[in-house]
């Protein structure tokens, strides 16, 4: 099963490598990983999407906890939380589809962040399903490339584990 694991880590060099090394060294899978600073500049947050059976997920959580630079591990899958991902999609639609691209962007509450003679770049934010859906819908219009940020997640207030 897929799990979204959120980490608080020391903002030091080598930490990302420790975490990536843990996953590669033990044969765990990383589907996406995103890193950013927190309100405290000495602490970074990471969101890792991984998958495995219960035993593997338990090991991943424990192994992450064991790393000395990891301050806190929260398996978001176990609590109510909000997930978001952003995607930038560069579409090169035919003349007759241009309007449809703009319409789809609007339906998905996206924005056009760049346009050229032949292309639009659409920015969409949402949960994974929404991102997958817009990609599916824009595919027939001619996607040149897209960039996904990877998932970030935050617990809903009142459900955080101590």
């Amino acid at each position: 099963m897929r799990h979204t694991i959120s980490l608080l880590v020391e903002n030091k060099f080598g930490v990302l490598s420790r975490i990536a090394g843990l996953f590669s060294g033990r044969g765990y899978n990383i589907e996406s990983l995103s890193v950013g600073e927190t309100i405290d500049p000495q602490i970074s947050t990471m969101t890792i999407v991984t998958s495995g059976d219960d035993q593997i997920i338990e090991q991943i959580n424990k192994q992450l906890n064991k790393l000395i630079d990891v301050i806190k591990v929260i398996d978001m899958t176990e609590l109510a939380h909000v997930e978001r991902e952003m995607v930038l999609i560069k579409v090169a639609p035919k003349q007759e589809n241009k309007a449809e691209v703009l319409r789809l962007a609007e339906i998905f509450r996206g924005r056009i962040v760049d346009s050229s003679q032949h292309t639009y770049t659409v920015e969409i934010t949402g949960d994974e399903k929404k991102i997958e859906a817009i990609i599916e819908l824009l595919k027939p219009m001619g996607i040149k490339e897209f960039m996904r940020t990877g998932k970030i997640a935050i617990a809903r207030e009142g459900t955080k584990k101590g």
Binding site: Q55, E58, Q59, K62, Q63, N65, K66
Partner: peptide, 8 residues
Amino acid sequence: IDPTSIRK
């Protein structure tokens, strides 16, 4: 003492 040893 090492939780990762348990149920590994």
